[in-house]
Design a protein around this nucleic acid. Structure first.
Length: 112
RNA sequence: UGGGUCGGCAAGACGGUCGCGUCAUCCGAAAGGGUGCCGAGGAACGUCCGGGCUCCGCAGAGCAUGGUGGUGGGUAACACCCACCCGGAGCAAUCCGCGAGAAAGUGCAACAGAAAGCAGACCGCCACGGGCCUUGUGCCCGGGGUAAGGGUGAAACGGUGGUGUAAGAGACCACCAGCGGCCCGAGCGAUCGGGUCGGCUGGGUAAACCUCGCCAGGAGCAAGGUCGAAUAAGGGGACGAUGAGGCUGCUCGCCGAGUCCCCGGGUAGACCGCUAGAGGGCUGCGGCAACGUAGUCCCGAGAUAGAUGACCGUCCACGGUGCCUAACGGCACCCGGACAGAACCCGGCGUAACAGCCGGCCCAUUCA
């Protein structure tokens, strides 16, 4: 699970990451990655719209994403901001599929 | 044993690894870290009612608008709950009714039918007048009488029997049903029981308008409050071309019109509101009950891009398949947890939803 300092919390941070970051679309998620150049731990934010389902389903997706992002924390460069947008249908796939989507997006965001 | 009906319980269990939030505590200058406790629901949901709380409004009365609608009680209050009444369904337990008013008025009603709301003459019935010849309990025509019978309909203007009549008719009579008035009795009351008189009977729909009684000020925790950067407008005061202020620590020199302070405003943001309350369990007492009351014990979510989880294992229900068994059932494998996530707090209602467990009552059956 992600601690508070690894979370994007303000609307400004979300906006700048979505605007400046590179976008990687998977089958169940869209991942925005922006490098700020600041020397601090990477931060993650999540967007789960109402199209995903009711509150229980949205909570489930967000918690799964948070848990897998926690495991990915060492692989992300410091100063990176990541916003994961969950697409409709993401509530029906197992956690492994979500994990694969995010890992693919982050590996493609690396320089080589 | 089977079926029905009403109510209650519970909402998979245990473990491992890695984590999250509030609070407490310890270490630390801080950032942060360690430890410990606690951490979703019966509907947390919909936001449909009712309150608390907060701000705004408020002489009094009326109107409008909205809500509500048998009676009595419970409650902070309600559209909720309890008891009872009436009507309906059921053998019964029990359930259902958005239960005021349809002789205040306006409106509406498919199809069928002759006619559907100051009813109505299609068939039929009945005398009367006329015609015919086949002289009959005849047929045809005419203008009338008639709601007993037929047929239509959800519904045809009380029912049965009689008197009466040309045939009929509450036209009249008896009984019955229903309506209204009055009286008596039971009940706090809705209402029920009985008596008497009356015109003899004037359908439905108010979740159509409407009428009557009763109840309602508005907005909502993004309420509201405290602190409050930055920036800009504004107000007041002091000083200022007799030089404010700056270059510049001081002097000279140069530049040359505002400078400083206070008030105020309340944005970004932070904090408070923010979780112990019309709270629950047990026992006693009052009450048919809802509930009230006394004593005693218990209670530990509080996030804010929004914590309460992710992954894995074992087991137990449900479901499926196969095998064994006369059957009850047993074994193996597979599948796999219903609806659903607090956001100021309570009381209700409504809606969603698998499978299960327990109990009361009713009916049927078997045995005694």
């Amino acid at each position: 699970m992600l601690a508070g300092r690894n979370r994007l919390v303000t609307a400004d941070d979300f906006k700048s990451t979505l605007r400046r970051g590179r976008r990687f679309t998977g089958s169940t998620t869209v991942v925005h990655v922006a490098s700020t150049g600041e020397s601090r731990p990477p931060r993650f934010g999540f967007i789960i719209t109402r199209k995903v389902g009711n509150a229980v389903k949205r909570n489930l997706v967000r918690r799964r994403l948070r848990a897998l992002c926690y495991r990915l924390l060492p692989a992300v460069a410091p100063g990176t901001d990541v916003v994961v947008r969950a697409l409709p249908g993401s509530e029906q796939v197992p956690s492994a599929t979500l994990h694969k989507d995010v890992v693919d997006a982050l590996s493609r965001s690396l320089p080589n």
